[in-house]
Amino acid sequence: MRHSLSLQIGPVAFRIGSAWRAPLEALAHLYQGYPQPERICDFTVRLEPERPWRRWLRPSVAIAGDYVLPDAAPMALAHGLLAAEMGMNLQMALGQKSYLLLHAASVEKDGRALILTGESGAGKSTLAALLGERGWRLMGDEFALLDLADGRLRAFPRAVSLKNGAIAVMEAEVDADRFGPVLAGTPKGTIRHVRPNKRALAAMAEPARPALILFPRFGEAAAARGVGQAEVFMRLTQSSTNYVALGGAGFEALNGLVAACPAAAIDYPDAATAIDMVEGLWEQAA
């Protein structure tokens, strides 16, 4: 490929090739300060023109790589950074077989991990990003990696993907130089990425023992309820992209996680309330 870049994110190294320079420049800027990647990469991502002439003419970026979804819609070149991010997500979702993948955010304190999971729009990314600025270590906002062998959580601190209203919340919290470009008019609205802080990057190789699972839901009056193990198990199978593909090993890992962690569903009207609720439940779980 014409342009290429490698990134190390937690235990996973990506090799990203692109037909255009711009998406990789944006990526390199956003991922400043990440550790030197391993030479041998876990996954290859490709950003390539949908048709040969679309490199110059109304450029459109097709997301390709080791693992691809058939019929994925190509994206505008202006959203090339987002295409690269989606390409990395796709490799993890379809190709990662060394960890049980939970579609969840996670943060760490005192070597123990809090897992936040829920539907898209539940606010887990924003909540994790805020906690990451207030005394916790951000482990990741998109995927939590559960080690099949030892049941510990591995950090996967990609740039946090903020959507719409969450962008202003974090802009008030974080230095401007940690932000990526504003990507307006994407299929998910306006998106802006923010780089996790130095502490999250410095500790990305350190695993943590899962201690609490929360199912946050934004936009409701404050309420918390305990969630039974059977329900937690079912909800986590639904939020995992590779539970079925891992077979018995996935079942064992998930069973171990559910047996070891208390869980609660929390509804919250705003970020400040959510953070108070999280801290309270964390103290109870400790």
């Binding site: 090799r15 030479r39 041998i40 990469c41 290859t44 080791d66 693992y67 190709g95």
Partner: peptide, 14 residues
């Protein structure tokens, strides 16, 4: 070498 491993793995997956 390192880059050959990347090529080998990507092509084998494809």
């Amino acid at each position: 070498a390192g880059e050959e491993w990347n090529a080998l793995i990507a092509a084998a997956r494809a």
